[in-house]
């Protein structure tokens, strides 16, 4: 049975590790500025944890086989442990874990502590059962007022987020169901939710943030590649959670300007 255990544990270790190393299933291609840092930290953590994983599982299988009761008269080492070894092990783990943590912290700080840089594109993202709406403030740079009692999800866009059309600031607000950010410019998003918690998740951007009713959460990211990206909702929000799905079309600056101008023209 010792040998069987060795084989089983080593095989499990081999296959688990193989699919990680071969990257058969891996993080989607990174298409935002943060992806590079996060992927680096991920790879570092992954290598270190991978070594510990293989070492621990390998040792477990080996010890089980090597020290099986084979009926021989071999003596068991009578020992209650080794305090020095314990201390070395504890220190090493503490250094490894805490060090790893500190290494990643600056990325978190730059992502979450600092506000978006000047000149970024403001977009308000509103989640509701089961759709995302995106609002651009228009030339005045100000979001118009929204009212809870005006919200009508069945009417879509402006009405869905309850835009108060009597507010002058709301006149030039553009509300869409698909997000169009320009490439290589920071996007300053304001996350809101009208009913329950949703989560704005763009796997390719390594971006995720819950949208919480009662809060307006400011976040920012910078897309680096033109393309279409999916936004699956990542917080359980009700029966349609699996189909709460938005699209993000990253376009060039010219296309963005053209697109926004066309939307503004539609409004008039």
């Amino acid at each position: 049975m010792g040998l069987a255990l060795l084989v089983i544990i080593w095989l499990i270790t081999f296959f688990s590790t193989y699919f990680f190393v071969a990257q058969t299933w891996w993080l989607p291609h990174g298409a935002a500025k943060a992806a590079e840092f996060i992927d680096h930290q991920f790879a570092l953590t992954y290598v270190l944890m991978g070594i510990v994983f293989v070492a621990a599982q390998g040792a477990l299988g080996w010890l089980a086989w090597k020290y099986r009761d084979d009926g021989s008269s071999r003596k068991v080492e009578y020992s209650h442990g080794n305090t020095k070894l314990e201390l070395i092990w504890t220190t090493l783990t503490a250094v490894l874990f805490v060090g790893l943590n500190l290494m990643g912290s600056h990325v978190w700080a730059s992502e979450r502590f600092e506000p978006a840089a000047a000149g970024s594109v403001p977009v308000e993202v509103t989640g509701m059962q089961f759709a995302w709406y995106f609002r651009y403030p228009g030339p005045d740079g100000k979001y118009g007022r929204t009212e809870a009692k005006l919200m009508d999800p069945s009417a879509g866009n402006d009405a869905a987020i309850g835009l108060d059309t009597t507010d002058p600031a709301a006149k030039d607000d553009v509300v869409t169901g698909t997000m169009y950010p320009p490439v290589k410019r920071e996007v300053d998003i304001t996350l809101r939710a009208v009913d329950v918690i949703h989560s704005f998740f763009v796997p390719s951007f390594r971006f995720k943030q819950d949208a919480v009713p009662g809060l307006a959460i400011h976040m920012h990211f910078t897309p680096t590649e033109i393309g279409e990206y999916e936004i699956p909702c990542a917080e359980l929000c009700g029966l349609g959670h699996y189909k709460m799905h938005g699209m993000l079309h990253v376009v060039s600056q010219e296309d963005f300007d053209k697109w926004l101008a066309a939307r503004e023209a539609e409004k008039q």
Partner: peptide, 10 residues
């Protein structure tokens, strides 16, 4: 604080 729709502030 809670986010107030009306004024767009907390």
């Amino acid at each position: 604080p809670t986010f107030d729709d009306h004024t767009g502030t907390y």
